[in-house]
């Protein structure tokens, strides 16, 4: 186990989730993430990574409890939680739905009901953070894959979340976009949970690795520990 940092930011207790067709996706899952950690969530396809991620801001609500900065996720706290947990989806096309990049990045702040000047300041800051200034009036649909990914992050950053959650952030990116993307992640100060198959990214970016398989956590340790354990990787479809 890594040295526990003092401040838990996400506390998941006995989370259990079953799809309507009866398939159990998560079983009695318990996990705590501390402020400032960069955690990788790895595991084979269908292990429950995406399902778990969709619980972190209440899109899915399973049995058990999840607390974000001490706030229980319930139907009443959804909006509060969603401004604290920024979810970046695997496919940026899911996330970009406005006619211009500016409007897309502004969606979160406008929804929060912030004043116009504040919205503008946040959009500018978010686009700067992902090095996409100057693209305000572009059509998101026509951007390249790497650019879309950056804008998708900006749409979340503009909400000023304290935790960033990524689902397969490097999937489908060409090597240069991927490298630039990882460099960008390294610049961002937020607590991060990254679900990925990209073990190189895990090694470079994270200080804790959680292995999940068939809805259960099967290992939790430092990248050196986990990535050095070939038998473990092999047993859970990671090598």
């Amino acid at each position: 186990m890594p040295e526990p940092l003092p401040n838990p930011i996400i506390e998941i207790q006995n989370l259990r989730f079953q799809y309507p067709d009866g398939k159990v996706a998560l079983e009695e899952l318990t996990l705590t993430i501390f402020t400032g950690e960069k955690v990788a969530l790895v595991g084979p396809n269908g292990a429950g990574k995406s399902t778990l991620i969709l619980h972190l801001n209440g899109i899915f609500q399973g049995k058990g409890s999840i607390r974000v900065k001490g706030v229980d996720i319930t139907s009443k706290t959804l909006e509060k939680v969603r401004s604290m947990v920024g979810l970046v989806f695997q496919n940026p096309d899911d996330q970009l739905f406005s006619p211009t990049v500016y409007e897309d990045v502004a969606y979160g702040p406008v929804y929060m009901g912030l004043p116009k000047a504040e919205v503008h300041a946040r959009v500018t800051a978010a686009l700067n953070a992902v090095h996409m200034q100057g693209f305000e009036q572009n059509v998101p649909f026509h951007l390249s894959g790497g650019e879309k990914k950056r804008v998708a992050i900006a749409t979340v950053l503009s909400m000023q979340p304290e935790i960033l959650v990524f689902d397969e952030p490097t999937a489908g990116l060409d090597p240069r976009s991927r490298r630039e993307f990882i460099e960008l992640l390294e610049e961002l100060p937020q607590t991060m949970l990254i679900a990925t198959h990209d073990l190189d990214l895990v090694q470079r970016m994270t200080n804790r690795v959680v292995v999940i398989d068939r809805g259960k956590i099967v290992a939790d340790g430092s990248p050196e520990q986990i990535l050095g354990d070939h038998a473990l990787l092999l047993a859970h479809g990671l090598a």
């Binding site: 899109i59 909006e79 509060k80 969603r82 401004s83 989806f89 996330q95 749409t155």
Partner: peptide, 15 residues
């Protein structure tokens, strides 16, 4: 469904 999920994820309240 996926679009809708992505939108809900970004529909938050100011803290």
């Amino acid at each position: 469904t996926r679009l809708e999920r992505a939108r809900s994820s970004r529909s938050g309240a100011a803290p």
